[in-house]
């Protein structure tokens, strides 16, 4: 671990000024990912600015049925909040399906979506990785690809985004409030993360020094019947092979509306707009759900690799979406 300076300012503006002024500075939330990176040599900042006291740790009602979640709210508190559990069960379920109790107590709302890929080659400084070092090459292609992308990958990077919370937020049309050197702005959550393209070193559209202040959940009555289904290699404490965040509005056997996002399959939480569109007005049946999955996954591309590659994830995601929608629709009736 390279020695670094540490600051813990009490306000967001100071934090932003410090980081914006130093290209080798980073924000620290709960530290559940960054501290690993410091030890592994994946991150070697000169300055760490702890923002847990600089941003809000409160969840506030917006008066219209939505919620504003302060960036410093721990994942465990967010998952336990009665309003979240009632209005957006998909958020609570996503959080509780990730990490462990101890980690959720540390991890923050602002930090969770900014955690970095767990690609084994990204985390190992002895193997080339375009995300860690631009232009060095992608070791994952042709390597151990079980946890890698089937959607939206590039020739530079096939990593997946590991957050469960982010998948739920992408499905719910959340908005991120950020503060930067140029002031405050809002970013639709689905636009926060990038696809890798030619620049896999960039996970998000945030400028250096931009700090997440809050995440806003808009009013969405149908989200009261929502769910997060995570399929993984063991029953707990594992990243998703595939996951589905979904909310459906079903009446008289017809899907009136749907919100769907996928996790574990792309460089960003994958909002499944084609699947949503295919479902609107369709009968609430396995055939419709399967057709929706197939529409969304028409462009899916499996990765070869050692240990059999990841082609199974296309079928697995199809089956998982069908099962999730079936259970939700059944709940509705």
């Amino acid at each position: 671990m390279k020695p670094f300076a540490y600051q813990a300012p009490g306000d967001a503006a100071t934090a932003v000024r410090s980081v914006a002024a130093d290209p080798a500075a980073v924000f620290l939330g709960g530290g559940t990912n960054l501290v690993d990176h410091l030890k592994l040599g994946v991150a070697a900042p000169d300055l760490i600015v702890d923002v847990t006291a600089a941003t809000s740790n409160e969840i506030t009602d917006d008066g219209a049925g939505g919620l504003r979640i302060g960036a410093a709210v721990p994942n465990s508190e967010l998952a336990a909040d009665r309003r979240v559990r009632d209005r957006y069960p998909v958020v609570a379920q996503a959080l509780l399906s990730g990490a462990s109790g101890q980690l959720r107590n540390m991890a923050t709302t602002g930090g969770n979506p900014l955690q970095r890929t767990r690609c084994v080659y990204f985390q190992d400084v002895t193997t080339p990785c375009n995300k860690r070092k631009s232009g060095s090459g992608c070791s994952a292609i042709g390597g151990y690809t079980r946890y890698h992308a089937i959607l939206g990958a590039s020739e530079q990077c096939i990593a997946t985004h590991p957050s469960d919370l982010a998948v739920a937020l992408a499905a719910l049309d959340a908005e991120v409030r950020v503060l930067g050197a140029a002031g405050e702005r809002g970013i639709p959550f689905v636009d926060l993360h990038r696809l890798p393209g030619e620049h896999p070193e960039l996970d998000t559209v945030l400028e250096h020094g931009e700090l997440i202040l809050s995440i806003d959940l808009p009013p969405l009555p149908m989200a009261a019947r929502s769910a997060y289904r995570k399929v993984r290699d063991r029953a707990s404490y594992a990243f998703a092979l595939v996951s589905v965040a979904a909310a459906v509005d079903v009446a008289d056997g017809i899907v009136r509306d749907a919100r769907i996002a996928f996790g574990g399959v792309a460089h960003k939480p994958w909002r499944a707009t084609k699947a949503e569109e295919s479902l609107r007005g369709a009968p609430a049946s396995d055939d419709s759900y399967r057709a929706a999955a197939q529409t969304e996954l028409a462009g899916a591309q499996a990765q070869d690799g050692i240990d059999g590659g990841n082609a199974f994830k296309i079928l697995l995601l199809t089956r998982t979406l069908v099962a999730t929608l079936r259970d939700l629709a059944h709940e509705e009736t």
Partner: peptide, 29 residues
């Protein structure tokens, strides 16, 4: 159900070399 050290023949080492990636049954299993 879980354990498997994945040796990447291109590099010659086990790439899932930590407890996040080398899965051992947890209490829930």
């Amino acid at each position: 159900l879980h354990e498997q050290s994945v040796l990447d023949p291109r590099f010659g080492h086990v790439v899932n070399h930590d407890f996040a990636d080398y899965h051992i049954s947890v209490c829930a299993d």
